[in-house]
């Protein structure tokens, strides 16, 4: 903000330019260069080593006819939709509850947020243990007398993604609560007073006044959460290693397996380019709305 009106001279900010070299190198060489490199090589038939032997869209054809990839996409969709809906609803409700000028707010907030400090690996391993059919929840309910009770998501190909969603929600909802709470705190107290004077019930005030006002917070949170969902990897590795069979395979894991295990780089590059495309579809409209429409300093 300081230098908008200063005259431009090439050596004017020399120290600043030198100090920015790491940022420029990272941005251009790694982020931009690395991304372009992967996209270009996704059109080649690289196997063990990257080779510039172009084969057009072959890798993508093969990718979209591989059942394992289709399962990955489907799983990511299930995980994404469920964790978005539930984490937003639960996160917002918790934030709204904490915003009622309650006592011990800090304690509650600390408890709701602490899983977020833990890694996905730790989260995944704990939930793997809790959902363990021989010792965990299923066993306990059975030992209480309900012999036919079945709750064994991690070993059931149809349910395994729901088990992973359960753990993911435990880990991530606190973050959403925190962001929503920050948004709710930013709402002018007078609006609440006005609503109370007009005799509008609290839930209606939330639904018709507060939530529309929080739209920017919702959008930002949505983008962050969605960009995180696409990266889903560690949690699956820790909880199921993609099993049973391929039932909990996700794109990030597919990429890793093909790049570093199956020595099929071209497939890995094509799959990772598809991930990039997914994120781009999420990010570009948002960036356009956020930064394109109204220019701010």
């Amino acid at each position: 903000m300081a230098s908008d009106t200063r005259p431009r001279r090439p050596f004017r900010n020399l120290s600043a330019k030198i100090a920015s070299i790491p940022m420029i190198v990272t941005a251009v060489c790694v982020f931009l260069g690395g991304t372009l490199w992967t996209v270009v090589y996704s059109f080649t038939n690289s196997k063990l080593l990257p080779r510039l032997n172009f084969v057009g869209l072959d890798q993508y054809d093969r990718l979209w006819s591989t059942p394992r990839w289709l399962v990955s996409i489907e799983n990511l969709a299930i995980y994404g939709v469920l964790s978005l809906i539930f984490s937003f609803v639960i996160g917002f409700l918790l934030a709204a509850l904490l915003d009622q000028k309650i006592r011990f707010e800090n304690t509650f907030r600390t408890i709701f947020l602490y899983p977020f400090a833990l890694s996905f690996i730790v989260t995944g391993l704990v939930w793997q243990w809790i959902l363990n059919p021989d010792f965990g929840v299923q066993n306990i309910v059975r030992s209480l007398g309900w012999e036919s009770f079945t709750f064994n998501p991690l070993y059931d190909a149809n349910l395994v993604m729901y088990g992973i969603v359960l753990a993911g929600l435990w880990q991530g909802t606190g973050l959403i609560m925190c962001l929503m709470l920050a948004g709710l705190r930013g709402i002018d107290e007078d609006i609440w007073k006005a609503a109370r004077v007009d005799g509008i019930p609290t839930w209606k005030t939330y639904l018709y006044v507060v939530i529309p006002m929080l739209r920017p917070v919702f959008v930002t949170t949505l983008v962050i959460v969605m960009a995180g969902i696409v990266k889903l990897y560690d949690l699956v590795v820790a909880m199921t290693s993609g099993g049973p069979g391929n039932a909990s395979e996700v794109p990030a894991k597919y990429v890793y397996e093909f790049m570093f295990r199956a020595q099929n780089l071209g497939q890995g590059f094509a799959a990772s380019t598809m991930m990039l495309l997914t994120v781009a579809i999420i990010i570009i409209p948002w960036a356009y709305l956020e930064f394109g429409g109204r220019r701010r300093g």
């Binding site: 230098s3 900010n13 260069g33 990257p50 890995g268 994120v279």
Partner: peptide
Amino acid sequence: ANWRFRGSEVFFAILIFGAFIPYQVMLYP
């Protein structure tokens, strides 16, 4: 923040987009 120069905002924008790019794309390079 304090010593903007020509192009600094462009590099910064690329950097921020880099935060959203799935790491998988940059793993092998």
